[in-house]
């Protein structure tokens, strides 16, 4: 395991009026591990990821990424530094083909959005990279399909694949298998984790399915009422009395 954490939160807090959604969370993430975040509904999981990605401003605390304080950095700049997230409900471009969706990510990673005169279909560098990524995620058969008509599972994979195309250091996945049929869940997780290991991407994933959490995480962070209940390796967290009391038995 790396010695320096790539991402660190210190006493991160978020209030919505009088409600404290995230209450002083201090955790560390490394770029070569897969961390599962668990917790009952309302534990602050999604709020926490929104704070990290910059979708919500912090009430208090700091977020350090790659040695730098990014607490008030704009969203797109965090992405450019290598802190990327995917979405629970797939966020993809509907009136564009799968290929264009993917190429959009590739070009954005290369920060070539401002190139004015090279038609995208003639830009061989990004075209071949897009093709490679589509193959990696088994999407090449859909390359020319408009995404609005794709089955949900494929949309989900595309959403994750588009985040991978950004070559992040850390990737946050908000329920990567929600809405995916139970038989395909393992396949989806397999694809994602393999790609992550291969490209040295640290994964943080929120999941309700305890089996997936057990099978795919190196470490688990358990949140409860906005606080960290446990932060340890899989076996230790699963056996923790508190976790069992508040999360596992509470019907997740």
């Amino acid at each position: 395991m790396s010695t320096e954490p790539i991402l660190k939160t210190e006493n991160v807090r978020k209030d919505f009026g009088s409600i404290v959604a995230v209450d002083g969370v201090s955790v560390e993430f490394y770029d070569d591990e897969i961390v599962g975040i668990i917790g009952p509904n309302g534990a602050g999981k999604t709020t926490f990821t929104n704070l990290i990605s910059g979708a919500l401003p912090l009430t208090d605390g700091t977020i350090v990424f790659d040695g730098e304080d990014i607490s008030s950095l704009q969203k797109y700049k965090r992405v450019r530094r290598g802190l990327v997230r995917s979405f629970q409900i797939p966020q993809i471009y509907d009136e564009m083909t799968v290929f264009e969706n993917m190429q959009a990510s590739v070009l954005s990673r290369k920060q070539e959005n401002n190139r004015l005169f090279m038609p995208t279909n003639r830009d061989s560098a990004s075209v071949s990279e897009t093709e490679r990524l589509l193959e990696l995620f088994n999407l090449e058969a859909h390359a020319d399909d408009h995404t609005e008509h794709l089955p949900h599972g494929v949309r989900k994979v595309l959403d994750v694949a588009m985040s991978f195309a950004l070559e992040p250091e850390i990737m946050i996945l908000d329920e990567p298998t929600s809405g995916v049929g139970s038989r395909e869940k393992n396949a989806v997780m397999e694809t994602i984790t393999e790609a992550a290991v291969e490209q040295h991407i640290g994964l943080i994933f929120i999941e309700h399915d305890m089996e997936l959490i057990r099978d795919y995480s190196d470490r688990i962070i358990a949140l409860h009422e906005g606080r960290v209940l446990a932060d340890d390796d899989v076996a230790a967290v699963m056996e923790s009395e508190e976790v069992n009391q508040f999360i596992l038995e509470g019907g997740v």
């Binding site: 070009l107 190139r115 995208t120 990004s126």
Partner: peptide, 10 residues
């Protein structure tokens, strides 16, 4: 048709 145009579509 350039990356710029694609960005607007995004």
């Amino acid at each position: 048709r350039s990356p710029f145009g694609l960005t607007l579509k995004m």
